Computed example of a mutant assay.
Amino acid sequence: MNNEATGEGGPVVALTGATGFIGTALRAQLMAAGYRVRALYRPRRGRNVQCADGLKWVAGDLGDRDALAALVEGADAVVHCAGSVRGASPEAFNQVNETGVLDIVQAATASPTCHRFLLVSSLAAREPELSDYANSKRLGEIALEANAGRLNWAIIRPPAVYGPGDKEMLPLFQGMARGLAAIPGDGSGRFSLIHVADLASAVVAWLNTESASGCTYELDDGHERGYDWDTVLGTASRVLRGNAPIRRLHIPVPVLRTVAGINLMAARAFGYAPMLSPGKVREITHPDWVGNGHAFTQATGWQPALGFERGLAETLGVAAPAISGIPS
């Protein structure tokens, strides 16, 4: 497993969350950009990590301080994208999304070679009062701000991330392909999106730029003022159904709250981590999840390359219609 390039090579980036949806895309783009990657992974039955030149796997998790020390040893920068999106209690979220950040930041500050730290947070951190998840992401940002010390650091807050390998938004897109879209509440909110490849390229852009320390950036795919459901469904109709209509199934908020409450009680009783919870209902029915990536573009020169039309086609593995301009 220890196939990190030796001798001459690019800078070493320590990466957490390297086996997840976002981390997998990050790992590939970092290596393509010439970085050597030190990747944290949690050993478990059936998991086989892929070996490659320029890549070294470090076994452990965010609660293993020895593993974190080994992860950052000799690294020039840390990209922390590990996190928890499911939990039955505030403590379950905070243990990963706050304490996990604190521990990896402390490991980075203790390493004499590590000078930069990038936290991949979430746009949800902008509204910490909505849910335990959102609050834990904000607490993680605060942990970085308070403990970064000499590190040059930044936070990026992506909106909803989608792309090949995503499991959270895939059922929604598959439903659209079949002609049905389940929409929470009245569907009046606006939201930004970003393809996972663009998120990964944004991370590389930050690493390639000597930008000011202590900045928090929002990201988006460049679609001004985000999206509404009319735009999303119109695009999905063109890309996935040859302009055939997509029927909307509006799920009333009281129904969502009832189901979420039952799910949370069951999760606590049976010991599983729920996705749908009362906090998640407040998140998905919040009217404004529009990000603004202009400040990040000004700081790094990064530009998104995948509008929703092309990104949706790639996610579902279909041929995209002719696309003019970015984003679509």
Rank of each mutant, 00 (worst) to 15 (best):
T6G: 12
P11Q: 15
V12G: 01
V12N: 01
T16F: 08
G17N: 07
F21C: 10
A25H: 15
Q29N: 13
M31I: 13
G34T: 08
Y35V: 09
P43Q: 15
G54S: 10
K56C: 14
D64A: 11
D66R: 14
A67P: 03
E73Y: 04
D76E: 14
H80A: 07
H80G: 04
C81F: 00
C81E: 03
G83S: 13
A88N: 09
P90I: 08
F93N: 03
N94H: 11
Q95S: 11
V101H: 03
L102V: 04
L102F: 11
I104F: 01
I104A: 01
I104M: 04
V105P: 05
Q106S: 12
Q106T: 11
A108V: 05
T109F: 05
P112E: 07
P112I: 02
R116P: 00
L119W: 02
V120T: 11
V120R: 03
S122K: 07
S122G: 06
L123W: 03
A124V: 10
E127V: 02
E127M: 05
L130W: 03
S131Q: 06
D132K: 00
R138Q: 13
L144I: 07
L151W: 08
W153H: 08
W153L: 11
A154Q: 11
A154G: 15
I156D: 03
V161D: 04
Y162L: 10
Y162H: 13
P171S: 07
F173A: 13
F173V: 11
Q174M: 10
M176T: 03
L180N: 02
A182V: 11
A182E: 00
I183E: 00
G187N: 01
G187S: 06
S188Q: 14
G189F: 00
F191H: 02
F191A: 01
V196F: 04
A197L: 12
A200T: 05
S201G: 10
V203E: 03
V204Q: 10
W206Y: 15
T209G: 06
S211Y: 02
A212I: 11
A212R: 15
G214E: 09
G214D: 11
T216V: 15
H223C: 10
R225M: 04
G226E: 09
Y227V: 06
D230T: 14
T231L: 14
V232L: 12
V232M: 08
L233T: 04
G234E: 08
A236R: 06
S237N: 09
L240P: 00
N243L: 07
N243F: 09
R247I: 03
R248T: 06
L249D: 00
L249T: 00
I251H: 01
V253S: 00
P254G: 13
L256H: 06
G261S: 14
G261K: 04
G261Q: 07
M265R: 15
R268K: 14
F270G: 00
F270I: 04
Y272Q: 05
Y272F: 15
P274K: 08
L276T: 07
P278R: 04
P278G: 01
V281G: 02
T285V: 07
P287I: 09
D288Q: 12
W289V: 08
G293M: 08
A299Y: 04
W302R: 05
P304L: 12
A305K: 14
L306M: 12
F308Y: 12
E309R: 10
E309I: 02
R310L: 13
R310Q: 12
R310W: 03
G311P: 07
L312I: 09
T315E: 01
V318F: 12
A319H: 07
P321D: 09
S324P: 00
G325N: 10
I326M: 11
S328F: 08
